[in-house]
Amino acid sequence: MDACLLASVFTLLPTFLGAQGSGDNSWSMKVQAEVRATEGYPVVLPCSFSHPNHTPHSSLLVAWRQGAALLFHCTTHAGSQACEPALHQDPRYRLEGNPREHDLSLRINSAALQDGGRYYCRVEVPGHKHASYEDKMGTLLRVEAPPRILSLSVGGSQDSGFRALCEVEGSPLPDIQWVSPDHLLEGLEVGRPPGQGPPSQHHTVSQLPDIHPGQQYTCSATNPLGREQATLYVLPPRREACPGAAAPSLLLLLSLSLGAKALLLGGVGVWAVQGRASSGPICRWR
């Protein structure tokens, strides 16, 4: 990156926080108020502009930010059609439009839930007084995702009682229901598990207290894009044949279904609280 380009970029950064134009009424910029995307798919944020000082031979400095964070910037040099991105630019972002044709649209490849937020488009014509502009309202990007059950686990002990935990992600945030074979059960929303950071608008954990051996419990997560569910089978304790052998404390069999399709998780994992033989049930994932 040459010294002139670097100086232009740092000149832009203080003005980003104000989200203001140059004060030149000859500018115009057109963006969409809201864009919706699906997780894992590309999305384009439209942005176009016009200004009398811009000619096909003008150099342009283009920048996009999400909130206060600068995400992307590139420069078109005189005599070149390409908009050259900054060094170490995240490859997920690229300019979809052609600045020579007044199109500054940004493409985000493989949209993720954390990409949701408000985006602002900015353009500058270097060497011209007041020849810069940023749309004040911006574009709100909403990234949607069907429910996904990240984990279904058991906590507690025989003394304090066992509880089931269902960790779910999705956008809009899924509704969670606990179901036994014959009736609905009352779960409690407990946010994210300890040590996993602050609560997220796309992530939640529901807890079902007082689960019992010999029963099965289903966690069902639903939002407008779909439904996913997982079922936990809690088997009664069994005695070990070998005296003195240590035994895990709870047996779990997990099945997962997407809509009408049932998906059995392959492999076996073990969750265990070590104790003496015959102290409690056995535990395993399926």
Results as ranks from 00 to 15, higher is better:
P213R: 00
V168S: 03
S160F: 10
V179W: 05
S157L: 01
A245T: 15
P248C: 09
L265K: 07
Y41N: 10
E240P: 03
C219S: 01
G21T: 12
L173S: 03
Y41Q: 14
N53D: 12
R107C: 03
H102E: 15
C47M: 10
V35Q: 10
A63W: 10
C283T: 12
S278L: 10
L60C: 08
Q66P: 02
L225K: 00
G23F: 13
V62G: 05
N53I: 02
P126K: 04
C47P: 04
D175M: 10
G269S: 02
P99I: 05
G214N: 06
A145N: 06
L150F: 00
P181T: 09
C83H: 03
E101I: 00
G266S: 12
G155N: 06
G191E: 01
S160C: 02
E240D: 15
R284T: 12
T76S: 11
A245C: 11
G40W: 09
L252I: 09
D2F: 02
Q158F: 07
C121L: 02
A3T: 15
L17Q: 09
E96S: 15
L254R: 13
R36H: 14
T222P: 05
V123E: 05
M29T: 08
K261M: 14
H77G: 05
E167Y: 14
S249K: 01
Q229N: 10
P236F: 07
